[in-house]
Computed example of a mutant assay.
Amino acid sequence: MDISIKQFKIISTLEAISFLLLLGIAMPLKYIFEMPQMVQVVGMLHGILFIMYVMAAYFMKEKLQWPTSTFLIVLLCSVLPFGPFYAERKYLNG
């Protein structure tokens, strides 16, 4: 499978936004206002995007010949709020 840098940036951005929506909107709705529906929807979407991000990061590692340390940092960024935005700017100059 071949993935472009532009495609990875799109996946990365969507993954980051879905994570922020989950943490900033869906979780407060569930635990403060007892409205769990949004967690179900946003959580599923985020899960799919997270898996896509990890797979795409592996393909970028191969394509751009990242050292293992860079790959691990990009993976770590996927579990931090705003992390994928940092990874895009730091490691994807194309």
Results as ranks from 00 to 15, higher is better:
Ser78Arg: 07
Ile51Leu: 14
Ile51Phe: 09
Thr68Trp: 07
Val79Ile: 15
Met55Ile: 15
Val74Ala: 14
Phe82Ile: 14
Leu45Met: 12
Trp66Ala: 00
Pro81Met: 11
Ile51Val: 15
Gly43Gln: 05
Gly47Asn: 12
Met60Arg: 01
Phe50Pro: 07
Phe59Cys: 03
Met44Asn: 09
Phe82His: 03
Gly83Tyr: 02
Gly83Lys: 01
Gly43Asn: 05
Gly43Asp: 07
Ser69Asn: 06
Val74Ser: 06
Leu72Trp: 10
Gln40Thr: 13
Gly83Arg: 02
Gln40Cys: 09
Val41Lys: 13
Leu80Tyr: 04
Phe59Glu: 11
Met52Ile: 04
Ser69Lys: 08
Val41Phe: 15
Lys61His: 10
Gln65Tyr: 05
Phe71Trp: 11
Ser78Phe: 08
Phe85Pro: 06
Met60Gly: 00
Ser78Trp: 06
Glu62Gln: 11
Ile51Ala: 13
Pro81Asn: 13
Leu76Val: 11
Lys61Trp: 10
Gln40Glu: 12
Val41Leu: 15
Leu64Ser: 02
Met55Ala: 14
Pro67Arg: 07
Ser78Cys: 09
Ile48Gln: 04
Gln65Thr: 13
Met55Val: 14
Gly47Leu: 10
Met55Glu: 08
Gly47Cys: 10
Thr70Tyr: 03
Lys61Ala: 11
Phe82Asp: 04
Ile73Met: 11
Phe50Ile: 01
Gln40Ile: 13
Tyr53Asn: 03
Phe59Ala: 04
Val54Gly: 00
Ala57Gly: 01
Pro84Asn: 12
Phe82Ser: 05
Thr68Tyr: 06
Val79Glu: 00
Leu80Lys: 03
Gly47Asp: 10
Ser69Trp: 06
Val42Gln: 01
Met44Gly: 12
Ser69His: 06
Met55Asp: 09
Leu76Tyr: 11
Ala57Lys: 00
Val54Asn: 00
Gly47Pro: 13
Ala57Asp: 00
Ala56Cys: 08
Leu75Lys: 10
Leu76Gly: 15
Gln40Pro: 03
Met60Phe: 00
Tyr58Ala: 04
Leu76Ser: 12
Val42Ala: 02
Val42Cys: 01
Glu62His: 05
Thr68Lys: 07
Phe71Cys: 03
Leu49Tyr: 05
Ile73Asn: 05
Phe82Glu: 02
Gln40Ser: 14
Leu64Phe: 08
Ala56Trp: 04
Cys77Arg: 00
Tyr58Pro: 00
Ile73Tyr: 05
Tyr53Gly: 03
Lys61Pro: 06
Glu62Ser: 10
Ile73Trp: 12
Leu76Asp: 06
Leu45Asn: 05
Gly47Ala: 09
Val42Trp: 01
Ser78Ala: 14
Ser69Cys: 02
Leu76Lys: 08
Phe85Trp: 14
His46Phe: 03
Pro81His: 11
Gly43Leu: 06
Met60Ser: 01
Cys77Ala: 15
Gln40Leu: 14
Ala56Ser: 15
Leu75Pro: 11
His46Val: 08
Gly43Trp: 02
Ile51Thr: 08
Glu62Ala: 02
His46Asp: 06
Phe59Pro: 01
Trp66Glu: 00
Ala57Val: 07
Leu80Ile: 15
Leu80Trp: 02
Met44Thr: 14
Met55Ser: 10
Leu45Ser: 10
Leu75Cys: 13
Cys77Phe: 03
